[in-house]
């Protein structure tokens, strides 16, 4: 019998500017050595669905942590209230995001059962932020799940102060897996094709998959956008990707 146990808990980590921020950690109760995954939550916040994703990585044999990117605006608030405040204030600044992911990666590398390899994954707005982190930090693998505005500029009315990452892609420091919906408009298939072209020009290691019949947020099991076939295939590809690059 395989002993299957994990510890999931709210913790405090030190993010951008050494700020103490809330995070959700899920770790297998195994001696290791294990790779680590930083989970970047979507724009609706540090919610139950994202915590479920974090636990799933632990169940799959990775130490995982999800920083609450809205800790500063709304400490202790419910995820939807925190997301509303963050939206009203223009979202998460890029430099703060990078600092918070750096803090999360440092937490993972400091665990006694860490193999010192850390990957990052993000969904929706977090997809772009995962790419940003992978262009800014020493990480070992990255996954972008339908992140918009990696190559295209956001509309003027967008609530987030996001700028395209086109000029940063030459700095991508680790292999990138991209999972997209063919029916998504943000990012559109044309945008993901352009991103793929830029990565190829820079000689980066990447793998992109676009799912027919799926739009934005096809991984979200609690929304009508959920597409089980795409999500199941996507999860397998994510675990294979992290297994390939985060396993000692």
């Amino acid at each position: 019998m395989r002993y299957d146990a994990l510890l999931a808990e709210t913790i405090t980590i030190h993010g951008h500017g050494s700020d103490a921020i809330e995070a959700y950690s899920a770790r297998p109760l195994q001696p290791g050595p294990l790779g680590g995954v930083v989970v970047i939550h979507h724009m609706p916040g540090y919610d139950r669905a994202t915590k479920e994703i974090t636990r799933r990585f632990a169940e799959a044999g990775f130490n995982a942590v999800c920083p609450n990117l809205y800790s500063r605006e709304a400490p202790g608030a419910s995820p939807d209230d925190a997301a509303a405040i963050a939206r009203a204030r223009g979202g998460v600044p890029d430099d703060r995001l990078v600092g918070d992911v750096a803090g999360a990666a440092s937490y993972l590398r400091g665990l006694p059962n860490s193999n010192q390899k850390v990957g990052v994954i993000g969904y929706c707005s977090g997809g772009r932020q995962a790419v940003l982190a992978a262009c800014s930090l020493d990480l070992d693998a990255a996954v972008d799940c339908y992140g918009a505005f990696v190559v295209a500029a956001p509309p003027p009315e967008a609530p987030i102060a996001a700028t395209p990452l086109r000029d940063r892609l030459a700095d991508l420091r680790c292999p990138l897996l991209g999972l997209f919906g063919a029916e998504d408009a943000h990012p559109s298939p044309a945008e993901t094709a352009e991103l793929e072209k830029i990565l190829a020009e820079h000689g980066k290691t990447y793998e992109f998959h676009s799912y027919q019949g799926a739009g934005h947020a096809f991984f979200a099991v609690d929304r009508p956008s959920y597409r089980p076939d795409a999500a199941n295939d996507g999860w397998q590809r994510i675990l294979n990707w992290f297994g390939r690059y985060l396993t000692a």
């Binding site: 724009m43 707005s125 918009a148 509309p155 009315e157 609530p159 987030i160 934005h216 947020a217």
Partner: peptide, 9 residues
């Protein structure tokens, strides 16, 4: 899709 379009008043 996420439209991201937000109007603040």
């Amino acid at each position: 899709m996420c439209t991201y379009i937000t109007k603040h008043l």
